[in-house]
Design a protein around this nucleic acid. Structure first.
Length: 801
RNA sequence: GCCGUUGUGGCGGAAUAGGCAGACGCAAGGGACUUAAAAUCCCUCGAUGGCAACAUCGUGCCGGUUCAAGUCCGGCCAACGGCACCA
């Protein structure tokens, strides 16, 4: 009756059953508790599904299947984040329309995802490039614009000469293009920004309310980079005039240690003084050099400080009245703080380096054991005591900060200020394959949003989508589309031709899944009130400071305008580790260490792939693919299949396998995201049954149900064989807490902290009983007991000699 | 430089809350079955010594706390990830 396991036949059979019958359709069932499990939707690239995807998706797959068996109404959706450069570049190369490329890739992904047997609700697929979807992406942009949170600004942007796109700071870290690896140059351009900085505080204060791993919270906190300090106004004086200049400092207490002022080479005040700077030619030269310097060079650490003394100018310290020299130097950035600093070389490494290079005085104002002429003392020590600072001498650093800020305020020269490292979100691309920004430029009315009832503003069908060399969008070539009329005055106007960055569509897709077919609402209010927040969201660490922050920002904005009722979109977040090649290196075509899930499924089947990817190691840590390791999971699957033969109706002793404890261990581990140990418990249980040589139907059914979320095909088949009913209609096993404790327990016996014996005693035995058992082992022979440390049901340690 | 994570057998990795280090799996060695191989099943498997019972050592390094340390504390070293002239 039971033959060798034919995974090809069985997997195809169950996939057909699930997908033809919509077994996993999410229903808003008021009688059930809901559970929303979310995975980061994939970018449908031409290379198809990667084993990394399998790891990323399988955790929530297990949770979704488990929750369904437990009686929850589960929303476990899938979609495609399909706008973006790789598709566009591929379309250009192959002379196809990106729409065609995208549709083909999505088809391939769907086929692959189904071959893994994922329990997605295939009726809820969203595609960010579908006008019915990006209609709402554009709608959100318009709301942001109306609230003053979207603005156009002329700034230096990171331009990649290869991709011909303006990049967000996040995409050009270290001056290298995220996508192609070439060096980024600075270019001045009018671009759209979203004021994410307005939400910096809210994004920070939301973190304690969500269940994210600490490393993710820390990374987000560092990214937002809050600092408390003060804006302090110095005066810059030339022979002809005096101008105020504001510096930002986190150490206003060190004001008496200021020995010079440094201004960023891009600072507008330099133009203001212009000819009054005696060495203007040198300045111009220095500015030009600084501009040419690529981001990479400029941020390189341990680089010698360069700068230029501005002759003919001096600055006045607002507290001490002392006059100090003014420099410009490229170690001061225009885009942080105010673009100018008060330099305190005694207590700042960079200022100290600069002071040494330009032979400037160093004045100690915080007492320390260091000689500040030799090296700076940079600790912000709460206990540090101020010296050489008449108004605040003898105070601790926090006391001094508080007192000096009051004094600055009284003199109207300084005020407390909070600053953030996070910059506003550069919200634009000069490429074709993205959401058109729904703004019309009218010569008389200015920037006017497209009427909301005219959304979606559909991307025009363009023949030539190639980018232009001048950093403007290919949409500019589509004159018929660009020329339009102003919605306000009806006069001739032109459309914005920039498109949105790829992060736009992924910033709210979790909401669309709740009611993907609703044409009236971004999210249907009834659906939203049922599904609410995402209960558990899994994704990659690489998205922690971008997608995860952007989507929290948009959700908080939608909360503020009343579209959603939860401030935070995600209750819990986890992050899978990377799957590396068998050589321990990141998988890449050039290394030739890429594992294709299709090949694995062909050879071992989807269940074995799923088992192995979850068994491979700690889910949150990176793991190297092992072509040998997978065999263990294949054996386990086959042994589980063959265990059907061991089922007997005879009365057998099953005391060697505590099913209640197994249920608890496996289920707790699933919920904790410890899939590797959950599978290990199931392997152990099966080993127990094999060494016993017989099993009960109840045992095999229980293992089938516990294993079903990981290996759904084989367990569905076994369960159907044994019970003639669907496992998807069965109930997840529940354990009896009273039965997870064994009757007898083995207690290790230590003598002087060293393991000397083990004794078997009834669970809960007291010290006397255990000691009695210890004496019988004879390991105390000839020894006198001085002290006994006894931990019930755990250990006994005897101090004896 | 700052922040974070991680160092455990030949390998991937286990080890609530300080309580038997090495679960589970791979590889390896031996055996059974087989004409043979594969598959399957059984046994061994941290190091050193010993025929053996057993003993000693052993979780990156040095020190400490404790009856007891992979786990806690102090000081290092290495690898990975994030940020980075952020005032």
């Amino acid at each position: 009756m039971i033959n060798e396991y034919n995974f090809k036949k069985v997997e195809a059979k169950w996939q057909k059953y699930w997908y033809d019958n919509n077994i996993f359709a999410a229903k808003e069932d008021p009688n059930k508790e809901k559970f929303y499990a979310l995975i980061e939707f994939p970018y449908p690239s031409g290379s198809g599904l990667h084993v990394g995807h399998i790891r990323a998706f399988s955790s929530m797959e297990v949770i979704a299947r488990k929750k369904r068996l437990e009686g929850y109404s589960v929303l476990f959706p899938i979609g495609y984040d399909a706008f973006g450069l790789p598709t566009e570049n591929y379309a250009l190369q192959t002379k196809q329309h990106p729409r065609v490329v995208t549709d083909n890739n999505i088809k391939m992904f769907e086929k692959q995802l189904k071959s893994v047997g994922y329990s997605f609700d295939w009726d809820r697929v969203v595609d960010t490039t579908d006008p019915s979807y990006y209609k709402w992406t554009q709608w959100i942009f318009i709301q942001l614009f109306k609230k003053g949170l979207a603005y156009k600004s002329k700034t230096l942007v990171n331009f990649c000469p290869d991709c011909k796109v303006v990049l967000a700071n996040e995409e050009s870290q270290g001056g290298i293009c995220d996508r192609c690896g070439s060096e980024v140059v600075q270019k001045e351009k009018e671009v759209w920004f979203l004021k994410i900085r307005n939400y910096a505080e809210s994004l920070l204060s939301g973190l304690p309310t969500v269940n994210f791993p600490d490393r993710i919270k820390t990374e987000q906190e560092n990214w937002i980079g809050k600092s408390n300090g003060a804006d302090v106004t110095f005066k810059i004086v030339s022979s002809k005039k005096t101008s105020p200049i504001v510096v930002y400092t986190t150490r206003p207490d060190t004001i008496y240690g200021v020995t010079f002022l440094v201004i960023s080479p891009e600072h507008p005040i330099l133009d203001e003084f212009g000819a009054e700077i005696e060495n203007l030619d040198e300045l111009k030269e220095y500015q030009a050099k600084a501009k040419l310097k690529k981001e990479l060079e400029r941020t390189q650490l341990n680089k010698d400080k360069t700068g230029l003394l501005l002759k003919g100018l001096y600055a006045v310290n607002p507290i001490t009245g002392t006059t100090i020299p003014v420099f410009t130097a490229d170690y001061v950035m225009m885009d942080y703080g105010t673009g100018a600093i008060m330099a305190v070389p005694a207590h700042d490494k960079r200022d100290w380096d600069f002071a040494k290079a330009y032979d400037l005085p160093i004045i100690e104002v915080i007492k320390s054991s260091l000689n500040v002429q030799e090296e700076p003392y940079v600790e912000k020590d709460e206990e540090g005591i101020l010296v050489n600072s008449p108004l605040i001498n003898g105070l601790t650093v926090p006391q001094a900060i508080s007192k000096i800020i009051k004094e600055m305020a009284r003199l109207h020269v300084g005020y407390p200020k909070t600053d953030y490292k996070m910059k506003d979100w550069a919200f634009n691309r000069q490429r074709y394959w993205g959401e058109p920004i729904p703004i019309i430029n009218c010569p008389s009315c200015g920037q006017v949003p497209v009427q909301e009832n005219e959304l979606p503003l559909v991307l025009p069908d363009l023949k030539d989508i190639s980018p232009t060399d001048d950093a403007s969008s290919p949409l500019k070539k589509c004159v018929d589309w660009v020329n339009t009329t102003c919605p306000i005055c009806g006069g001739p106007a032109t459309r914005e031709t920039d498109t949105m960055p790829q992060w736009a569509g992924s910033s709210w897709y979790f909401l669309r899944y709740m009611s993907p077919h609703d044409s009236e609402h971004l999210v249907n209010p009834n659906s939203y009130s049922y599904w609410g927040q995402v209960d558990w969201y899994n994704g990659g660490m690489e998205h922690v400071t971008r997608h995860l922050i952007y989507s929290r920002f948009w959700n908080q904005f939608l909360f503020d305008i009343g579209v959603v009722t939860h401030k935070e979109p995600y209750i819990r977040r986890s992050a899978q580790g990377l799957i590396l090649g068998a050589d321990g290196e990141k998988m890449s075509k050039s290394r030739g260490n890429v594992v294709n899930p299709d090949d694995v499924i062909k050879e071992y089947g989807a269940d074995v792939l799923r088992l192995f990817i979850l068994f491979i190691g700690d889910y949150e840590k990176p793991a190297a693919w092992s072509p040998d390791g997978i065999k263990g999971c294949q054996r386990f699957a086959n042994r589980f299949w063959a265990a059907q033969k061991l089922i007997t109706k005879d009365n057998i002793d099953t005391s060697d396998l505590n099913l209640d404890l197994l249920i608890k261990n496996v289920s707790d581990d699933y919920e904790a995201g410890k899939f590797n140990t959950a599978i290990a418990y199931l392997m152990t249980a099966l080993n127990t049954i094999y060494s016993r040589g017989a099993a009960t139907l109840h045992e095999i059914n229980t293992i089938a149900l516990l294993l079903n979320p990981v290996a759904p095909h084989i367990t569905s088949e076994v369960f159907y064989n044994l019970n003639k009913s669907q496992i998807t209609d069965a109930k997840y096993p529940v354990f009896d807490p009273a039965k997870i404790i064994a009757d007898e327990i083995e207690i290790p016996v230590q003598i002087m902290g060293k393991l000397r014996a083990r004794v078997l005693v009834p669970t809960g035995s007291n010290e006397e009983t255990v000691m009695e058992a210890v004496k019988q082992t004879g390991c105390l022979e000839g020894k006198s007991v001085r002290k006994v440390i006894f931990v019930k049901d755990r250990i006994i340690n005897i101090i004896a000699n």
